[in-house]
Nucleic acid binder design. Structure first.
Lengths: 170, 170
DNA sequence: GAGCGCCTCTTAAAATGTTTAATTAAAAGA
DNA sequence: TCTTTTAATTAAACATTTTAAGAGGCGCTC
């Protein structure tokens, strides 16, 4: 950018030397960090012919091949039609294939193809490169704590966002 | 066959009591946490008639009214046409208005309307509620460290993502 | 075993968000 | 004056997501 940043452009609420973050800084910081990571991840994924959002499907299947479409949707936090569309696109790209379940014909099970299985390593490498880049100069302890807190945030929010079993009558 | 090593030689994701997270767990955890937060934030924002992504514009203008369209785009990490579109939608909704700069007619400066100014508090409250929900049972120190690390991640990724001055031919 | 309800997935329609490329307008400089 | 650069917008294209509605199959009850 051609602009010059002045040093003391604004000191809204933080000490100039301490950076006293509060809980109010969390959502913007999390949003921004996730956006930056998605940008870098997308760039890495493009080399495999994948779009952002598809890598989660591949990795989930690499861990448990033959998941149902609904299971994938739930695991990745999207609605069923979204997953149908994503799966359809990825099937057209040759990364995976659908097979009807033998026992229950309502279920659509999703399996990785050879191409899909071959892309797992590329995805993991791209993801690892992104993670390494993001955590430059972090200690292992910081990384462990960071992941732990992120997972706790997710659990806290999902507990509120999805009141799963609201037992009315049992 | 599709499964990975089943006996825990690395216990990367199978152990639940130890939670030995590694750097490889970062991007999925960050992605998931940001998705959950966006979901909750969107729900809170809908009460104000705002969509996700618009709150950043309001808050930026609340801090510095009269920013240019380009400045908003840069601050929020989107391209100029995206910001033009977002501003246009929000202007139609009555949250802000555009005015040409008096000195430089190329610049479009953006100002909050009364409606926009009135929504600032609602946004901040919704954001604060989301943050509080997300950080249940967190200590203040954990929160400070978390925000600090998230900002560091963003800085690390942006430093790589935007190789600003790239003198290609000289 | 026929009908009814429920579950799973898919299709359809609509809205948002994003990008690149091209266009318009205005300032800056030679 | 003429050329170049800058800022914003428009246009075209595509990805992602959602809700609502439809199609098909399973299980249970009578």
């Amino acid at each position: 950018m051609g602009k010059k940043h002045k040093d003391g452009k604004k000191q809204k609420s933080k000490k100039k030397d301490q950076t006293e973050y509060t809980v109010a800084d969390l959502s913007p910081a999390l949003t921004q960090a996730a956006r930056s990571m998605r940008t870098v991840l997308s760039r890495n994924l493009l080399d495999s012919g994948l779009y952002a959002g598809q890598d989660g499907v591949i990795l989930s299947l690499a861990e448990a091949d033959g998941m149902t479409a609904g299971g994938l949707a739930q695991k990745l936090g999207v609605k069923a039609p979204t997953m149908t569309r994503t799966i359809g696109r990825m099937e057209a790209q040759g990364f995976l294939e659908r097979k009807a379940d033998a026992d229950d014909a309502r279920l659509t099970k999703v399996y990785l193809t050879e191409l899909g299985r071959g892309s797992v390593k590329a995805i993991e490498m791209g993801s690892a490169a992104c993670d390494a880049l993001a955590t430059q100069a972090f200690t292992e302890k910081e990384i462990r704590n960071l992941v732990r807190l992120l997972k706790a945030i997710d659990a806290n929010l999902q507990a509120e966002a999805v009141p799963l079993d609201e037992p009315d009558e049992n």
